[in-house]
């Protein structure tokens, strides 16, 4: 121990006991809270301020979005199972659950693509009214985050065939998991504030 010194990104004892990369991820997610918080605030500020339609109540299909929200929530369960598998060294199960998580993420994104298209056909674009502006930008940025998450999940899946994901390096999966759960939680807030709390 006395000589394998301070290659800063390797697993050394840290002052806090938290791995550097894990601390980085937590800080990043803290920063992301302000990011989504700002977009959600802008949405709430402009609620009921559209001068022309279509309005949210004309477009929202709550049962449909509830299903896609449920799908995204379930992806957090499969994410947990993927991490549990690799922590036990079960590479095969981890791959299955990673693929399942990616698949559920893709289903959610498909649902979002369908929803965007449906709204567009009803005449809602970025420039139509305040609802279009704030809705598409907020949910679009969330969708972009889910897309990045799916890419990371698929990358982990691919890396596992190169022997890069092992029980010892399960932190990789844990970090992707933290990100994935965060994106899920943000969606819970968005779904509640934007879909369920209906404007008067």
């Amino acid at each position: 121990m006395a000589h394998a010194v301070a290659a800063p990104t390797t697993h050394l004892e840290t002052n806090t006991g938290l791995d550097n990369r894990k601390l980085l991820m937590w800080l990043f997610l803290g920063s992301e809270c302000l990011f989504f918080g700002s977009f959600i605030s802008a949405y709430l500020l402009y609620r009921n301020r559209s001068i022309t339609g279509p309005y949210p109540k004309d477009l929202f299909d709550i049962p449909f979005t509830s299903v896609s929200s449920f799908v995204l929530l379930m992806s957090s369960v499969s994410m947990v199972l993927a991490l549990a598998a690799i922590q036990k060294g079960d590479l095969r199960r981890m791959r299955i659950w990673l693929l399942a998580t990616s698949f559920l993420g893709l289903v959610f994104l498909g649902g979002q693509a369908y929803e965007f298209t449906a709204f567009y056909r009803e005449g809602l674009t970025l420039k139509t009214n305040m609802f279009g502006t704030t809705f598409f930008v907020l949910t679009g940025f969330h969708g972009a985050h889910v897309t990045v998450g799916v890419l990371m999940l698929m990358s982990m899946w691919a890396a596992s065939f190169k022997g890069k994901i092992t029980q010892e390096s399960s932190l990789n999966i844990e970090l992707v998991g933290l990100y994935w759960h965060f994106v899920d939680i943000v969606w819970i807030v968005i779904f509640t504030m934007i879909y369920l709390v209906q404007p008067s």
Binding site: Y46, R49, S50, L126, K127, M130, T133, T134
Partner: peptide, 14 residues
């Protein structure tokens, strides 16, 4: 760049 209305008072933005 994409004609949104965040700051466009004519569409209700502030």
């Amino acid at each position: 760049l994409f004609d949104a209305n965040f700051f466009n008072a004519a569409k209700g933005g502030t």
